[in-house]
Design a protein around this nucleic acid. Structure first.
Lengths: 250, 250
DNA sequence: ACAAAAGTGTTAAGACTACACCCATGA
DNA sequence: TCATGGGTGTAGTCTTAACACTTTTGT
């Protein structure tokens, strides 16, 4: 069987790109950075930012470069990880393109900078971007869906949620991230206990932040731990908040 | 911005390959399928099986084809998932090669069939293959290490361990998989309870299997569920059995 | 004083650990 | 009958869900 089958063509015209799914939490929704395409194909359509991998750079390196180009990121805390690769023939009308998708999580970032291929970069609510009629270019709808799923499950057993918070942050800031990404309300008391008792998740700064209303909240920094065990479960939501405390008393 | 910056070279000579990390549990160790390389570079060295992606096939498709070529796999239950991509310049002396690594899990497979590029395919204990002096070719040591980590953590929250068991199997067969891959002993009673009570993990066949010694064990099929929640924790090992505290009643 | 958010306390339900102990089979 | 692994029962501990309640601020 080593010589009879038609031998694979060892090299054919193929391009390698990296595409970035950059998430941030703005207001009360998860947002993804998109670019309006400045050239064909899909001219005028929306797509994930990305670009060609250069001959002399690694994949992570290319992703980091693109991230910098798109967001103007400076040294801020920011999570970047490889998501997976997509390479169906026909996913790009120009030819065979393999893309390595990366997932980036960051605090509400400054107004995005238009990248090389982009006429315009903008934040879109993920809920809208995923709708079929939004019409993301290429197979970017699938990539985005995979990224959302990855982000959701990573919140359960890791501490990456802190990547969405600019330091220092409060426990409520962090809870807000979970609530927005999971789309459920969490019990503030139990959430606090869980995250403050997970060693290395939060490091108190000793400072407090006073907001318009309510008691000032303690401020924290990320504590350096990567994982949470046991995980924080998504199932434990609290459906009807607003009923508030004091429904019955002794 | 579309014409001033030094434009990335949109296409340069790149090859795209898929590499497979095929795991099975044999005897009391996790094994990986390796091939002895039949040509340069690394002629005579050991490497993960893999091959070039063809112009007209998708990545998953290529992985499945390679898997079939290497193992002679027929319809058996078998898990295949993309692991991640590796593309550092210089990872292959022949030029720029991006490889998409896949993780495959299967029951103790038949004697492997030599693939196209392989002089010989063989099962190697993962513990040995990971040692630096084993000298896996290319960056296959890193890929293998990543695969082991992925497999270990997937056992925690999914039911993929069943992919290692030929059906029908016993609870002990399944526990053996966990013990070998995690490298710890698990309490048989508690393990049984956990897996039998996780809905959809195991489906009783009604049959039993009698072995040389001991009570016959009930036989099960995989039940179709993908995940386990809450997860089965690795921490819960049983280091020194027989220490005996006698707290339980008599 | 009141509203609102931060933060603490408490209880009951559920899951897990560490075992003791019983069951079914071959030798 | 004994050895061996299969399988059940259970007490104590740990974790969580639910929610009452106290604290601290701005208005």
């Amino acid at each position: 069987m080593t010589h009879s089958a038609p031998p694979a063509v060892p090299r054919f015209p193929v391009s390698v790109t990296v595409d970035l799914v950059i998430f941030t939490v703005r207001d009360d929704a998860l947002h993804v950075l998109l670019v309006e395409r400045g050239k064909e194909p899909f001219l005028g359509g929306s797509a994930l930012p990305g670009g060609y991998v250069r001959p002399d750079e690694g994949l992570d390196e290319a992703a980091l470069r693109e991230l910098r180009e798109e967001t103007g990121l400076d040294g801020g805390r920011l999570h970047l990880e490889q998501l997976r690769s997509y390479g169906d023939p026909g996913r790009d009308p120009r030819g065979r393109v393999i893309t390595v998708a990366y997932l980036a999580l960051g605090p509400d970032l400054p107004a995005p900078v238009a990248g090389t291929d982009a006429a315009r970069a903008f934040w879109a609510p993920v809920g809208e971007a995923l709708r079929a009629d939004f019409g993301l270019s290429f197979d970017h709808g699938s990539i985005l869906a995979d990224a959302v799923e990855r982000a959701r499950s990573k919140l359960e057993y890791t501490t990456v949620a802190t990547s969405f918070c600019r330091e220092p942050f409060t426990v409520s800031d962090l809870r807000h991230v979970y609530e927005v990404i999971w789309g459920i309300a969490l019990d503030p008391s139990n959430f606090r206990r869980k995250v403050t008792r997970t060693a290395g998740f939060l490091e108190p700064t000793g400072e407090r932040r006073t907001s318009e209303t309510g008691r000032p909240a303690a401020l924290y920094r990320f504590g350096g731990a990567a994982v949470m065990s046991p995980p924080l479960l998504r199932s434990g939501d609290i459906a009807g908040r607003g009923a508030g405390g004091g429904s019955g008393r002794g």
